[in-house]
Amino acid sequence: MLSDIITPDLFAAAVRIATPLALAAIGGTICERSGIVNIALEGMMLVGAFAGVVGALATGSAWFGVLCAILAGALLALIHAFASINLRTDQVVSGTAINILALGLTGFFMEVIYGHPGTTDSAPRLMPVFNISGPTEGVLGTIWTWINGVFLSFTPIVYIAIFIAIFGQWALFHTRWGLRLRALGEHPRAADTVGISVVRGRYSAVLMSGALGGLAGANLTLEQVGSFTEDMTNGRGFIALAANIFGRWTPGGSYLASLLFGFADALQIKLQLFRDVIKIPSQFFLMLPYVLTVVVLAGVVGRAVAPAAVGKPYEKG
């Protein structure tokens, strides 16, 4: 039975499920490193998912949909940036408001554009990047099935996410952008006194997180599901936040943490297929990713230290 559970499929599913979480989590990392809490990732993802479908349906191009998703996420993030940087609103309140706004906006435009609530028509989708046929027989066949399944079976945004995680990890610790970003979240006044613009730095970080949230949404609709359903993000934005913390506010860590959540989810889906054999109600498996989130956030994995100035509005002078 174990060989029925542990299949290339399981790992491929883990990576697929991890992708939107990872993109949003890296968005959260960038945002919080600049000193702004972003609990609106959920809403940014949702708006991105919807805008992606709208763009793809209108033009017939899935890639145009991706662009729309990124822009929509960034646009929503602009509200958060204005509220938390210019107006110095409590960032959690602003984020909550944006999440509610996103839910309302997508529902409203659903009615306006498509004339009905619920789910949209199927949109054009992004297809797997590689389509290589390899040996199917014998030991070579098994090895090929694993390699193809675990590494080569994915759609473009999955690879983009991996690239962003690796590049982001490097950039955070080796570039001017990364150093300044870290400075902003730890001690904005210190950054200000050496001539770094806090406002500009934080705006760009929040917008980037919005764009990544939107891209995460595009992955959901244009690569995974193929259509938009109201509230389809289903808490992924919050799991992404947990992944960011678990990943200790680093892009690479966020990706790996998302992979863990993705694996938990993939495993529970797989285990549901075996409910006649395992005899545990499937609801318990469904809980797995969420229990993991709670465990992680409760600090079982050791205390992570957040950027010192995160959540605090910056006032000049």
């Binding site: 570039t175 001017r176 150093l179 300044r180 870290r182 400075a183 730890e186 001690h187 006044r189 210190a190 950054a191 006194t193 050496v194 001539g195 770094i196 230290v305 010192a308």
Partner: peptide, 19 residues
């Protein structure tokens, strides 16, 4: 105006980094 988790070098060059 120092950023505690960063190194001495990073703090000194911050804002005028050789890149």
């Amino acid at each position: 105006m120092l950023i505690e988790p960063l190194t001495v070098t990073e703090n000194i060059v911050l804002g005028n980094e050789p890149t």
